[in-house]
């Protein structure tokens, strides 16, 4: 399949206050490409939740963003502590957030379930002590 667009973003862990640059840029690009606004919102929310997770929990990550004629793919590979119990992390309300994260309005235990909810295909691989790989696919049609 021909790739219409592809971009790689580096995300640094730690600074919650200014986080969200990659996902807001992804949203702007999708708008410029004329993608349906309902799809854009799903992609933007999934990307933003994934970006916030990196900023809050990991050291750094690469976010690969691809637009093909049929779907939008976001792959996030981070270096960080990983998740010991993925099924627990997928439950709404389960969170290991710090008070600082909660002060910024995050850490309600909604992130991963919300990424899944906005995706047509969602895969998560975690290696404790190494990091997490997320594969998010959202169909355009």
């Amino acid at each position: 399949m021909d790739k219409a667009f592809s971009q790689i973003y580096k995300i640094q862990g730690g600074n919650i206050y200014n986080a969200g640059k990659a996902s807001t840029e992804i949203k702007s690009i999708l708008k410029q490409l004329g993608i349906n606004s309902f799809i854009i919102r799903r992609v933007a929310i999934a990307a933003y939740e994934a970006e916030m997770n990196v900023v809050m929990y990991a050291k750094h990550a690469t976010m690969t963003f691809e637009v093909t004629p049929k779907q939008i793919n976001i792959i996030v590979e981070d270096e960080g502590p990983g998740i010991a119990d993925v099924s627990l992390a997928m439950q709404e309300g389960y969170s290991t957030a710090t008070p600082e994260m909660r002060e910024m309005g995050f850490g309600a235990g909604m992130g991963l379930p919300n990424i899944k909810r906005n995706s047509d295909s969602f895969k998560i691989e975690s290696v404790v002590g190494k990091g997490i790989k997320l594969e998010i696919k959202i169909n355009i049609n």
Partner: peptide
Amino acid sequence: DLMSDVLA
């Protein structure tokens, strides 16, 4: 006050 909930 929870942005997580706004997103969800």
